[in-house]
Design a protein around this nucleic acid. Structure first.
Lengths: 154, 154
DNA sequence: CACTTGCCTGGAGTGCACTCCAGGTCTTTA
DNA sequence: TAAAGACCTGGAGTGCACTCCAGGCAAGTG
């Protein structure tokens, strides 16, 4: 439940009134984002972004001539998909497995599909569980509404 | 997603064919279950049951004359509700808070209700998130179905 | 009466998913 | 040119929800 706390500020807030000056106004209007830009865009911390890379959840990220990471739109799209997988409740280790399959090429399509199908099933199960809890929750909430605390009914 | 692994064997399997002999056939047909019976019934480990008690998630549990825990049907009902709260994704600390409110008596009805309402909202949000992921999952699954791996289309 | 089994306790250990730190480089700004 | 700020690395630390351990007591069994 802690995954949706932060709304994403976005990379594209250069337009609009009161747009804050971009800290590093990349002259090329391009496909090369710094780690902090990506952090702002995705809502992940820079720590988490570097950690994702360490554990093999990211493809090889481009580097600037001084060795700083430069993320592409492609990387952003992958991060967005990873974010969806995270929302499914998939374990990070399984996401890494999926990333491995992607790295291995097209011949892993069937296995990737199987992984996603299993995930889909678990999402459906989880939705069912959550809906079950709603029944109980609503029952209790109604109970407390009908029987307000002694301090209230004087 | 690891919460629904085990199905509950149940306390009431004394009837039926091939019912295994109850290890400790409590002579009184009553309301006093040992910790391992409760573990079998709830799917929680005995460790977790004791831990729940330590952290204040349980009411005071009865003890036998030798100091062993004896759970009542009331305790079982509470554990079942706690299980539902756990399925909502509520943090254990918040469940403890709720248990505290219950201990404090009827004058906390309003606060309990507020807690459950907040939980209800977070469950609805979570269901929404999961449904969003299904869209992405289905899209990808279809993609992999339409474009089977090279090894398959020879 | 030894042995096994089930239970007790306080406290240590585990796995996960981050999160932060120390010590360093490079670039920009005053 | 000095200070500030964004970035780098390997590794340590954190919070959560358990999970297990050592050492001990009590009751039933061969």
């Amino acid at each position: 439940m802690t995954l949706t706390q932060r709304k994403q500020p976005g990379l594209d807030e250069t337009v609009g009134p009161c747009a804050p000056p971009k800290p590093v106004p990349r002259p090329d209007g391009q496909d090369r984002y710094t780690i902090s830009e990506v952090a702002a865009h995705t809502g992940l911390s820079v720590h988490t972004l570097r950690w994702y890379e360490r554990i093999g959840l990211m493809p090889t990220i481009d580097r600037s001539h001084t060795g700083q990471r430069r993320y592409t739109n492609r990387d952003l799209a992958w991060l967005s998909f990873v974010g969806k997988l995270r929302l499914t409740g998939m374990a990070v280790a399984d996401m890494v497995r999926y990333a491995d399959l992607v790295r291995q090429g097209d011949h892993t399509f069937a296995e990737r599909r199987a992984l996603l199908l299993a995930t889909r099933e678990s999402v459906l199960r989880r939705i069912g569980e959550l809906q079950d809890t709603l029944t109980v929750l609503d029952f209790k909430i109604d109970f407390y509404a009908d029987a307000p605390s002694a301090s209230e009914r004087l």
